[in-house]
């Protein structure tokens, strides 16, 4: 599956009000081209809800629901079961942010995964609570400046490293877990297609660069996603029932220093901080690829 195999038909319209250069609309629009019209979308509170579902206006051409922040897993479970009862085949699709996934939504998500509900959960990860003005989340990388982890005299950005959410989901041994990046279209589309064709609980985790919160020029969104993959800050793989079945390995690994360049949230980084972040990446790299970087 590649870009040229995608249909022209869109289920996500222009006219939405995301910031110029936001990755999230490109992510959901292209996913929807594959999921198609028999899909019901649920989103909790986040940027995506606010820019594509500003009541009474919707950028979605499929049924779309919004409920509370913390219960995406429960809501898509309910949608999936109701339609099963009615004997209709639809995709119950939940799309939540990193805040709605790593932090506040993790209990409902874990429950739905453990029950192996027949639903798809997408986490679009912009590494902070963006809709409310850039607060740190469990997804925020080490050292990144947010409004709750500012770079100032006392601290220099977030003190902790990013939590590995995809690995937590893999540990649930569900039918399908995959990490995606919009900068790698073929890999991205194949994983979306595979998720569509799989039954049971499916978890897709996609990096979603945010020009406003990460403070970079909006034309660089895809370039930054690509550098995230090439540096190992973001890794691409898929797992079935807990076993890793496919790994994408960048042709040439670039240093994290190259990834953080041009992103205002890392502007204050010292040499020691770069080294700390690099050590984290190298540990992750070794775990995934089984070799020294």
């Amino acid at each position: 599956m590649n870009i040229k195999d995608l249909p022209d038909e869109d289920y996500f319209t222009p006219g939405h009000t995301a910031c110029a250069g936001c990755a999230a609309p490109a992510i959901v629009r292209n996913m929807m081209k594959i999921f198609g019209k028999d899909t019901i979308v649920y989103t909790p509170a986040n940027c995506l809800l606010v820019f594509s579902g500003t009541y009474p206006h919707l950028a979605w051409k499929v049924p779309y629901l919004h409920e509370a922040f913390e219960n995406t897993g429960a809501c898509i479970s309910g949608i999936a079961r109701a339609y099963k009862k009615k004997g209709r085949k639809v995709i119950a699709l939940g799309i939540a942010g990193d805040g709605g996934t790593y932090d506040i939504g993790i209990q409902a998500l874990s429950g739905a995964a453990e029950r192996n509900e027949d639903a798809i959960y997408v986490c679009y990860d912009n590494e902070a609570y963006m809709n409310t003005g850039i607060q740190r989340s469990g997804a925020t990388p080490y050292g990144a400046a947010t409004t709750t982890t500012p770079a100032g005299k006392k601290i220099l950005g977030k003190l902790e490293h990013k939590k590995d959410m995809a690995e937590i989901m893999r540990a649930h041994e569900i039918p399908y877990v995959a990490t995606l990046s919009i900068s790698h279209p073929k890999d991205f589309l194949e994983k979306v297609k595979k998720a569509k064709e799989t039954e049971g609980f499916r978890y897709l985790h996609v990096l979603s660069p945010c020009p406003t919160g990460w403070r970079f020029d909006p034309s660089k969104t895809i370039e930054i996603a690509r550098k995230a993959v090439d540096s190992g800050m973001w890794t691409l793989y898929e797992a079935e029932y807990g076993e890793i079945t496919k790994i994408y390995k960048p042709k040439k690994k670039i240093p994290v220093a190259e990834y953080i360049k041009g992103q205002g949230r890392f502007r204050h980084f010292t040499e020691e901080m770069i080294e700390e972040l690099q050590r984290w990446v190298d540990r992750k790299w070794k775990r995934l690829y089984g070799e020294e970087p």
Binding site: T13, A23, A26, P211, D217, S219, T221
Partner: peptide
């Protein structure tokens, strides 16, 4: 066409065309 966040690029006779009604000028 794939990357445009606005979905405002279409292909006409095999070439990309921008719908300026929606393009926010991100430069991607």
């Amino acid at each position: 066409w794939f990357y445009c966040p606005e979905g405002c690029i279409s292909m006409q006779d095999g070439k990309a065309t921008v719908n300026y009604d929606y393009c926010k000028g991100c430069g991607i």
